[in-house]
Nucleic acid binder design. Structure first.
Length: 590
RNA sequence: GCGCUCGUAGCUCAGCUGGAUAGAGCGCCGGACUUCGAAUCCGUAGGUCGCAGGUUCGAAUCCUGCCGGGCGCACCA
C-alpha cells in the first residue's frame, strides 16, 4: 500500500529526470545511460516520507545534486496532474511528504475489507511448498534446540501461506538406528518393565531416561555399543521380540512428542518415518550411475565428484550396496515429490548440515530433477546458554516441556500478582498463551542464520521487547475497543475523517501500518520470521507511545474520538495478523 | 589445514541489495499512576560498527587480507 505511493512518485521523478536530462544534455544517449533512481526513507519524519538521493546524477547531468533536486521539484510542481503530496528540498535529496490522510482513508477501507488477510499477497499463488521441520529422534524428549526449529518451521509455513503458497508441513521422525537401539537396550536391561503409567513419566521422558542410562552403562561395560549394534542388526532382520520392543517404546515417545507439539502449538500435515524411508534412494543412485553422473569404485561403492562446485568427492552408496544418509535423503526427496508434487521444498535444519544440503541439492540437480533448483535449506544457528553450549552429559540441556511449564507458571503468578484472575477468566489458558508468545518471539527475534544465546532469566521476563509486551498492546486495544462498543451507537453518524490524524506519531503509525504488506513479502522471500518480529515491535512501540500521550475515548470531539478509534482498531488488526505469522497467541485480555 | 558462517553499546539483538547525526531491549541512574489496564511511557549516560587496506562523491553495509568465535570436512545420522 505504501509501496504503491512510493512507486507512483518514483515513476514521476524518473520521468522528470529523463526529460530534464534531455533538455540539459540534448541527446537520447544521456537519457538512457542515466543511473537508476534510488528510493529511500528519510532518517527523520520532518524531512518527509520518501527520499530520492540525487548524488549519482551529478556526473551525467553535469550539475550539483542540490540544483538537480530543485529543478526537478520545480518541474513536477509545474505539472497540473500530479499525486497529492508535497515536495521538499534537503540538499542533494528530493523528498516527498505524502498525503497521509489519503493513505489513511485507503488503509482503513482495505483493512476493513480484508481483515485477517490484510497484508497477504499473491506472490506465490499456485505454488506448492513443502516445509520439513522438527525431525525428532525417538530416543529422547524435545529440547530447546528443537524449539527453535519448530518455531521457525511453523512461522515460515504461515508466512509462505500469507504469500499465497499452498503449504504442506511435514515431519520426518528419526525412529531407527543405533541410537534408538541404545535406549531400547538399556530399557531391556534396567527397565524392569517400567511404563509411562507405572512411572508417571511422559513417554518421551521415560525413553529418554534409558537413553541417558545407556550412556552411563556404556562407561561400565565396554561391550555396550557392540550390543546395541547387534540389536540394530536384529531389528533389520525383523526379529519379533526386538520389533515388539521397538514398537512399544517408539509409541511411548511419539505419544509424548504429540503432547509436546500440542502444547507448543506445532502441527504437521504429514508424518514420515525413517523406518519407512531409510532404504530409499538406491534406485536413484543407480539411475545416476547409468546416466554417467556418478561413478563406481573398484570396491563397488558409488561416488560423485563434486569438483564442479569446488567440493570433494562424496560416497552415495556403500560397497555392500546399502544406503547412507545422503542416499536416503535423495530417495526421500524424490518419493515426496511423487507423493505431493511440490514446486519447492524447504528443509528447516541446523547449520551443522550446510554441507550436506549443498551436496544433496546439487546431486538432485545432476539427476535431472528440475525442481532441485527450488530446494532451500533454511539453516539456523545453535541455541546456546549464557554459560556456553548445552551438553547432555552435563545435564544442561533445556527440556522443552519443562520450559513451557515453567514459563506458564510464571505467567500465572504474574496474572495473580496483578489480580487479574477475574478479567482473564481461565488463568491457566491465558498463562499458557503468554508462555508461548514469550517463547516464540524470543526464538524468532534473532536472524535464523545466527547462533543465539538463550538466557532463561531474560526469556521469562515479560517486560521490554518481548512477546508478552506485544500481547499486552493487543489486549489494551481490545479493552479500549470493548469500551467503545458500549457507546458506539452515539458514533454511527460520525464519519471517519482521516485528516484528523495529523500528529507526527499518527502519521508514522499510519505509514507503518501501510507498510505491513511489504514486511510480509520480505519475510516470505527471505524465509525470515525475524522480519515480522521486528515489524511487530516497531508497530507496538509506536502505538504505545501514541496511546500513552494521547487520549482516545476521551479525546473530546466525537470526530476525533472516531478517528483515533479507527486508527487503534487498524493497529489491532495488523497486530493480530502479524501475531499469527510468528506464533504469538492473541489475547483480548491478559 | 580446507570450506561455510558470525564478529555493531557492559549484556542480548536490529540495521547489511552503499547514502543524511549507527538503533532497540535489558542493566545503570533519574522521572511519570485520584486520569481509556504502569506487563506501560519519558529522559540521562554508554559505540574507533573486530583490525588493516581497497572500490566509491559516499562504506556498519561491497571486495581483499588478517585476527577472533562457531560449525563442518565418516562407506554415522
Amino acid at each position: 500500500m505504501l509501496q504503491k505511493v512510493r512507486q507512483q512518485w518514483k515513476d514521476l521523478v524518473e520521468a522528470q529526470l529523463a526529460g530534464y536530462a534531455k533538455e540539459l544534455v540534448g541527446d537520447d544517449d544521456a537519457v538512457s545511460s542515466l543511473p537508476p533512481l534510488a528510493v529511500q526513507t528519510p532518517p527523520k519524519p520532518e524531512l518527509g516520507d520518501i527520499a530520492f538521493p540525487l548524488f549519482s546524477y551529478a556526473k551525467a547531468l553535469k550539475a550539483a545534486p542540490p540544483k538537480i533536486a530543485a529543478d526537478i521539484k520545480a518541474r513536477i510542481e509545474a505539472l497540473s496532474d500530479r499525486p497529492a503530496g508535497q515536495l521538499l528540498l534537503a540538499g542533494p535529496y528530493l523528498n516527498v511528504k505524502i498525503d497521509v490522510a489519503a493513505l489513511a482513508a485507503d488503509l482503513s477501507r482495505e483493512i476493513r475489507s480484508e481483515g485477517p488477510s490484510y497484508g497477504c499477497n499473491e506472490a506465490k499463488r499456485g505454488m506448492k511448498v513443502m516445509v520439513e521441520f522438527s525431525c525428532p529422534n525417538t530416543n529422547k524428549p524435545l529440547h530447546l534446540g528443537h524449539m527453535r526449529n519448530d518455531s521457525l518451521g511453523e512461522s515460515v509455513s504461515a508466512i509462505l501461506r500469507a504469500n499465497g503458497a499452498e503449504v504442506r508441513k511435514v515431519n520426518l521422525v528419526n525412529n531407527r538406528g543405533v541410537h534408538i537401539c541404545k535406549s531400547m537396550l538399556a530399557y531391556e536391561k534396567f527397565g524392569n518393565g517400567e511404563t509411562p503409567e507405572s512411572s508417571g513419566l511422559k513417554g518421551d521422558h521415560l525413553v529418554g531416561k534409558y537413553y541417558v542410562r545407556f550412556a552411563q552403562w556404556e562407561k561400565e561395560d565396554s561391550t555396550a555399543v557392540e550390543q546395541a549394534q547387534e540389536m540394530l542388526k536384529k531389528w533389520e532382520e525383523g526379529e519379533p521380540a526386538v520389533i515388539a520392543l521397538w514398537k512399544k517404546m517408539n509409541q511411548w515417545t511419539l505419544d509424548g512428542l504429540a503432547e509436546s507439539y500440542r502444547k507448543m502449538g506445532v502441527s504437521f500435515d504429514k508424518y514420515y518415518y525413517e523406518s519407512d524411508t531409510y532404504k530409499l534412494g538406491k534406485d536413484e543412485v543407480l539411475k545416476g550411475l547409468e546416466k554417467g553422473v556418478f561413478y563406481r569404485e573398484a570396491d563397488g561403492s558409488v561416488w560423485i565428484d563434486l569438483a564442479d562446485i569446488k567440493l570433494d568427492k562424496k560416497v552415495l552408496l556403500r560397497k555392500d550396496g546399502t544406503s547412507l544418509y545422503m542416499t536416503q535423503d535423495l530417495g526421500t526427496a524424490v518419493a515426496r515429490h511423487e507423493d505431493w508434487p511440490f514446486d519447492s521444498l524447504i528443509y528447516v535444519v541446523a547449520s551443522e548440515q550446510n554441507y550436506h544440503f549443498k551436496v544433496l541439492f546439487h546431486v538432485l540437480g545432476k539427476l535431472g530433477y528440475e525442481w532441485a533448483k527450488n530446494l532451500h535449506h533454511l539453516s539456523y544457528g545453535m541455541v546456546n546458554l549464557p554459560e556456553g553450549k548445552m551438553k547432555s552429559r552435563e545435564g544442561t540441556v533445556v527440556d522443552a516441556d519443562d520450559l513451557v511449564d515453567q514459563l506458564t507458571s510464571l505467567a500465572a503468578d504474574e496474572i495473580r500478582a496483578k489480580e487479574r484472575e477475574g478479567e482473564v477468566g481461565d488463568v491457566d489458558a491465558t498463562a499458557h498463551a503468554i508462555a508461548l508468545g514469550a517463547l516464540n518471539y524470543y526464538l524468532l527475534q534473532v536472524s535464523p542464520t545466527k547462533d543465539m544465546i538463550f538466557n532463561p532469566a531474560e526469556s521469562i521476563s515479560f517486560n521490554g521487547n518481548t512477546g508478552p509486551y506485544l500481547q499486552y498492546m493487543g489486549a489494551r486495544i481490545s479493552s479500549m475497543l470493548r469500551k467503545f462498543a458500549e457507546v458506539e451507537t452515539d458514533y454511527v453518524s460520525v464519519p471517519f475523517d482521516p485528516a484528523l490524524l495529523a500528529l507526527e506519531d499518527e502519521r508514522e503509525l499510519i505509514k507503518v501500518l501501510a507498510s505491513y504488506p511489504e514486511a510480509v513479502a520480505k519475510a516470505g522471500s527471505d524465509y525470515d520470521p525475524s522480519v515480522i518480529t521486528a515489524y511487530l515491535y516497531d508497530v507496538s512501540r509506536r502505538f504505545s507511545k501514541w496511546y500513552h500521550d494521547n487520549q482516545i475515548l476521551k479525546a473530546g470531539e466525537p470526530a476525533l474520538v472516531k478517528a483515533r478509534v479507527e486508527l487503534s482498531s487498524m493497529v489491532l488488526q495488523v497486530l493480530r495478523n502479524a501475531f499469527s505469522l510468528v506464533g504469538i497467541p492473541y489475547l483480548s485480555t491478559m
